[in-house]
Amino acid sequence: MRRDDHHPTVLLIEEDPLVGLAVGETLAEAGYRVAGPLATQAQALAWMAGRVPDLAVIDLPLRDGDGSRLARALRARGVPFLVHADRSADACTEFSLAPRLTKPAWHRDLVLALDQLAREAGPK
């Protein structure tokens, strides 16, 4: 789905560089601006120090923790996010209500899930 007016920015946190590049390319082709891929929670929080994304995709687990600081920072800024993880369970309750796609997810499904999040969030 191409967006003609506003191109939402997606913060992409993915520790595997090849997966990150593939997902980022898919999101860009779907009309999203992609920030990342970033490999750690610390990198994502540093990026967010001066900017606020419209949406986020988070790979779990993260190299530098369970992601709870990142989830709280995104929620505090009103940024909807989804989890794109290797396994269905994670220790962090911060992610329990977030939409989840288990890897390997079809890239089309990832775009559809982000489109749904964007619609639910409404215009910024």
Rank of each mutant, 00 (worst) to 15 (best):
L110N: 10
W106G: 11
L60N: 08
R2N: 00
E25A: 15
K103M: 12
L112H: 08
R119E: 13
R108F: 06
A46M: 14
P37D: 07
R63I: 06
H7A: 12
L110D: 02
D90E: 14
V79T: 05
L82R: 12
Y32I: 00
G24P: 09
R75E: 09
R75G: 12
T40L: 10
G36R: 02
L70K: 11
Q41V: 04
L62C: 00
R72L: 08
H84D: 05
G67N: 02
P99L: 02
G50L: 04
P37Y: 06
V23Q: 08
L45M: 09
L18V: 15
A76E: 11
L12N: 04
A46E: 14
P80N: 01
A35N: 08
R63C: 15
D90P: 14
L97V: 08
A46W: 12
E14M: 01
L62A: 04
T26I: 10
A121N: 00
G36I: 05
Q43N: 06
D64H: 01
Q43S: 08
P104D: 14
M1D: 06
G31A: 00
Q116K: 09
R51L: 04
D64I: 00
R63F: 12
P17V: 13
L38W: 02
A85Q: 10
F95K: 01
A118F: 00
R77V: 03
G50R: 06
W106P: 10
Q116F: 02
L114S: 02
P53N: 08
R33D: 04
D59H: 01
T102K: 14
F81C: 06
C92W: 11
E94T: 00
T26A: 15
G50D: 08
E15I: 01
R77C: 05
A28L: 13
L11Y: 01
L12M: 05
A71F: 01
A118M: 03
V83N: 03
R100F: 09
H84K: 02
V19N: 06
V52A: 11
Q116Y: 09
A113E: 09
L60T: 12
M1Q: 03
V23I: 10
V52S: 05
R75P: 09
Q41E: 10
A22L: 14
W106F: 07
L110E: 09
D115R: 02
D109S: 07
L55G: 03
L74S: 07
R100I: 08
L62G: 01
G24C: 12
V79Q: 03
L112F: 15
A91M: 10
R108G: 06
E25T: 12
V111L: 03
I13L: 10
F81V: 09
W47Y: 10
P37H: 08
A76P: 03
A71T: 01
I13E: 06
L12K: 06
V52F: 07
R72N: 15
L62Y: 03
G20S: 08
R33E: 09
A118Q: 00
A121E: 04
A44E: 04
V52C: 11
L27G: 13
D5W: 15
L27N: 00
G122F: 00
D86R: 14
L21Q: 14
L45R: 05
G36W: 07
Q116W: 05
Q43R: 12
D115M: 06
S96F: 05
R69W: 14
R33T: 11
R51I: 03
D109V: 09
L112N: 13
P17E: 15
D59E: 05
